[in-house]
Amino acid sequence: MVVFDDVSFGYGEQPVLRDLSLRIDRGQVVAIMGGSGSGKTTLLKLIGGQLRARTGRVLVDGDDVGTMNETTLYGMRRKLGMLFQFGALFTDLSVYDNVAFPLRERGKLPESVVRDLVLMKLHAVGLRGAAQLMPAELSGGMARRVALARAIALDPAIMLYDEPFTGLDPISLGVTGQLIRELNDALGGASIVVTHDVAESLAIVDYVYFLADGAVVAQGTPDEVRASTHPFVKQFINAEPDGPVPFHRDAEPYATALNLERP
């Protein structure tokens, strides 16, 4: 349902994605993994049409996002649901109104239908009891779940998750992972999970892409990934500090920086 075809992108002079190609099919939950700054969030913004590819095409449900005008772009976004890293709840609206927001903006649904739908979605994430709270009164994990309920309010065909696991306690982590899987199976669409949480995502996804420096360096099903001997994948899964991904950013030699070298 989502296809990247030789996509390149950059902010100013800095290239972020280089000739990236990948595809996500209906029914799949796909994880995009990579270190910080490897272009994962950029990839989601390209799908949502908030950014446009420099070269290559991004296809969503068969339509090229790059050639859309504003109207068709907004039409395409109705098929998308996105969970932001920190939830991005509207702080001036209650939990109930947050989840009702896309329903009310979308169409002319009667308020009784909106109410039923909101309670259903809140029930799905287990927060029906928090309906009247304000976002400021929620913990980070609860806010994320409310944001998830809001993202699925319109039953989108394609769900995008931006770092859904960061900053969650182990219990919320497992619950969120299960929710992502169940929602995808229930909606019958496709889900893209951008994450660097290896253990949790391998448990729920169908396919994994590893991103480094804006290109796919490795891919495979969770079982293939676990068995992989690819140095990058091994480093990532075993959380080793040394490997193809350097822990240190390029800098002058440590000794020089600390003035330890003798003249």
């Binding site: 932001f84 927001f101 995008l160």
Partner: peptide, 12 residues
């Protein structure tokens, strides 16, 4: 806090 982005992604 990405609320504007979230709105955009909700086709609003």
């Amino acid at each position: 806090t990405e609320q504007l982005s979230a709105m955009e992604m909700m086709a609003v």
